[in-house]
C-alpha cells in the first residue's frame, strides 16, 4: 500500500512537463522570495546588527562591537530588568487570569446560556478594534474629564493622573490588555468546544456530575490540543507585547517592555544598536514557544 503511494508520487513528479515545473517553481518562488527578503532577511540582519555599534545613518560606520550591547543591557541598564519584569507580569496575568477567564466564558457560551449570542458579540467586539482606537477609547475613560475621574468626583480642574501613577498603572494596563485578550481566547476556545462530543457531557450529567466537575474532569482534559495552542499563543503574545503600551506611552519608558525598549532605541533620538539587542532578546524568548506551537499544529505531518 505504502509503496504504491510512493510510486504514485514519483510518477506524478516525473510526469510534470517543463512548463508545469516552471509554473510550480513560480508558485513557490514568488511568495518565498517576498518572505525571505522582507521578513527573514531583516530579522537576520537585526541579529547581526545587535553585535555592532551603529548610529543608523551610514552603512560604512557600522563597527563590530562583539557582545558589548548585550553586556551594556545586562549589566548597565536597570531599565532592562524593569522591562523583563513587566513582560513577566504580562505573561503571568494573561496565563493565570485573562486566558482562564476567556476559557470559562467560552464554556458557559457553549452551554447556550441565556443571552449567549449577544454576550459573545460584546466580548469579541474589542478584538476587531484598532489599537489606535482602543487608546482613544480608554483615554476617554481615564483622562481628566473622563468617566473614571468623574466617578472619583474629580472634574477637569483637579483630575489625577492614572496612566502616570506607578502604583496602579500596571493594573490599568493589564485591564485594558485583557479587555482585548479575553474575547480573542473566548472565540478560539468556543470553536474548539464546538468540535467536542456532546454525548460525553450528557453522560456525565446523567451520572450526576456538576457542571464544574464535568468541565474540570471531562471537557478540559479532552481539549488538551486546543489548551496547548491557546497557552502558546498567550505566551507569544505576551512576549511580543508592544502596541498597546506604545499607544499609551509612546517611546517613553514609563512602563517599559522589551519591545518598547527596542523601538525606543530605534526611533527615539540617537539610534543605537542596543535596540537590536533588545529585540533579539525578545526574539530568543519567543523561539521556544514558537517551536512548541509548530510542533503541536503540525503534529501529524511531522510524523
Amino acid at each position: 500500500m505504502k509503496t504504491a503511494a510512493v510510486n504514485k508520487k514519483v510518477r506524478s513528479r516525473r510526469s510534470l512537463s517543463r512548463n508545469d515545473r516552471f509554473t510550480l517553481g513560480a508558485f513557490v518562488g514568488l511568495p518565498t522570495l517576498l518572505q525571505v527578503v522582507f521578513l527573514w532577511f531583516p530579522t537576520l540582519i537585526t541579529v547581526v546588527l545587535s553585535f555592532t555599534y551603529w548610529n543608523g545613518i551610514n552603512v560604512g560606520d557600522i563597527k563590530w562591537a562583539g557582545f558589548a550591547n548585550y553586556k551594556n543591557i545586562f549589566l548597565g541598564s536597570p531599565v532592562f530588568y524593569d522591562a523583563l519584569k513587566n513582560n513577566v507580569v504580562w505573561l503571568l496575568w494573561f496565563t493565570f487570569i485573562a486566558t482562564p477567564l476567556g476559557i470559562l466564558l467560552a464554556y458557559q457560551f457553549d452551554r447556550k446560556i441565556k443571552g449567549h449570542q449577544i454576550y459573545e458579540t460584546i466580548f469579541y467586539m474589542p478584538v476587531v478594534l484598532s489599537l489606535a482606537i482602543i487608546g482613544i477609547i480608554w483615554n476617554f475613560m481615564l483622562q481628566p474629564g473622563g468617566f473614571v475621574q468623574g466617578v472619583m468626583g474629580r472634574d477637569i480642574g483637579n483630575a489625577v493622573s492614572i496612566w502616570g501613577n506607578y502604583s496602579i498603572n500596571s493594573y490599568v494596563i493589564m485591564a485594558v490588555a485583557s479587555w482585548r485578550h479575553i474575547g480573542y481566547i473566548m472565540l478560539l476556545y468556543l470553536a474548539g468546544l464546538k468540535a467536542f462530543d456532546s454525548s460525553l457531557r450528557e453522560a456525565s450529567a446523567i451520572d450526576g456530575a456538576t457542571e464544574w466537575q464535568t468541565f474540570r474532569k471531562i471537557i478540559f482534559p479532552t481539549m488538551r490540543p486546543v489548551n496547548v495552542i491557546i497557552l502558546v499563543i498567550t505566551i507569544i503574545d505576551s512576549l511580543r507585547a508592544f502596541d498597546l503600551v506604545y499607544i499609551i506611552y509612546g517611546t517613553s519608558t514609563a512602563w517599559p517592555l522589551l519591545n518598547i525598549l527596542a523601538f525606543q532605541n530605534f526611533a527615539g533620538q540617537g539610534i543605537s544598536m542596543k535596540g537590536a539587542a533588545y529585540s533579539v532578546i525578545a526574539l530568543v524568548l519567543c523561539v521556544v514557544p514558537i517551536l512548541v506551537y509548530l510542533r503541536n499544529v503540525f503534529k501529524e505531518d511531522l510524523q
Binding site: 531583516p42 529585540s279 514558537i290
Partner: peptide, 19 residues
C-alpha cells in the same frame, strides 16, 4: 516550507524594523 511560512507570521515585528 509550511513551517517556515507559519513561523514567519509569529516573528516580533519590531525585530525587522531597522533593516
Amino acid at each position: 516550507l509550511l513551517l517556515f511560512f507559519t513561523a514567519g507570521n509569529m516573528l516580533p515585528t519590531i525585530a525587522t524594523y531597522i533593516p
